[in-house]
Design a protein around this nucleic acid. Structure first.
Lengths: 179, 179
DNA sequence: CCATTAAGTTTCGAGTCGAAACCATGAAGA
DNA sequence: TCTTCATGGTTTCGACTCGAAACTTAATGG
């Protein structure tokens, strides 16, 4: 029964070992690469230092330093929010995106047909089991609403562009599983 | 197509966030906990500093320090190998094992019936796609042989106890997938 | 307004990280 | 056997990460 967690640990470790290799190739720290990958697929509610801190389970102080390093390397840019001047939106630059693409290129999605669906079901279970934030995409969110062909977030009330709906959101609330 | 890697990244991040929480609870660094988890399920060919370095994709120098810290905290013990006096076997103490158990307790393997098999198939694909070491268990290894009811490692020629066969081995070579 | 809360930054000390030098022990050849 | 080389680990060093806590600035709410 703790078998699932052992498996998870092994999968996680394998993947992370690869991430670590890529990060050192590009002269980055592992955390910096992870931050880059996250920001590259975070929607506008979730591209802030605090959201990243929650995602990585780090303190905001630590994240602040990591982002400072990434910014001075020209891999991200920070722009303050229009409504709330306290929050900073972090965007990945073209150079940063190139590194992300390199990190996520899968060496063999050849011999693995069922891999993606297997991964999806793993992720779904995990999101329901984790006590912490789920960080899912809008499409799988309880707050996601469609009215007359237009997508809307029921939490903020704002309309969602197509690009935002497939990105990670920190406010994500998983739809309850039917049993 | 890089979708699989994004999924993997998310799964990995979710799991790691939990590991990080547990590690800080116990006053450990993330890497220290990861090392502990690995050593707890590594067979006698694989419980050495070098094997751990390969598993985590870290340098042996770095790992040496991490292990020193763990040893002085009383979470592992190091004993030199009988045959080759250069290698050190690292064993997790009872206190260390307790932390591992805590880290791996899954908060809800309730609502997830297919989780384990899904994880297993993910791991299998990963092991075949990774260019690096696979770190599988003997049971799934090319070198694993059974002769007259007795298990043997075809690489070292040595007999395998039951306990060793379900542990992680650094010499693991995945059985080729039939297509 | 003033107090409170919230998002980020800064500072500091402990620890991680990789690179490189180093120390053993084992193996292979002359 | 005496070298020489390879291998498993440790040590040292400088750069960076980490969490905790103090701090800055901006929003919120009597």
């Amino acid at each position: 029964m703790s078998d699932a967690h052992r498996l998870l640990e092994r999968i996680s470790a394998l993947f992370r070992a690869q991430l670590r290799r890529v990060s050192t190739e590009h002269g980055l720290k592992l955390v910096q690469l992870e931050a880059l990958v996250y920001l590259d697929s975070a929607n506008r509610y979730s591209d802030t230092p605090l959201a990243l801190a929650e995602y990585l389970a780090l303190t905001k102080g630590t994240v602040s330093q990591t982002l400072k390093a990434l910014e001075s390397s020209g891999l991200i840019t920070k722009t303050p929010d229009e409504q709330d001047r306290r929050v900073q939106h972090c965007a990945v630059t073209a150079e940063g995106a190139a590194i992300v693409a390199d990190a996520l290129r899968i060496p063999a999605d050849d011999g693995a047909p069922g891999l993606e669906s297997a991964l999806r079901s793993v992720l779904r279970s995990l999101q329901h089991s984790a006590d912490a934030r789920t960080f899912g995409v809008c499409n799988s969110c309880l707050h996601h609403q469609i009215e007359g062909g237009r997508a809307r977030c029921g939490l903020t009330g704002e309309p969602l562009r197509k690009a935002d709906r497939v990105k990670i959101c920190r406010e994500h609330e998983p739809v309850p599983l039917r049993t």
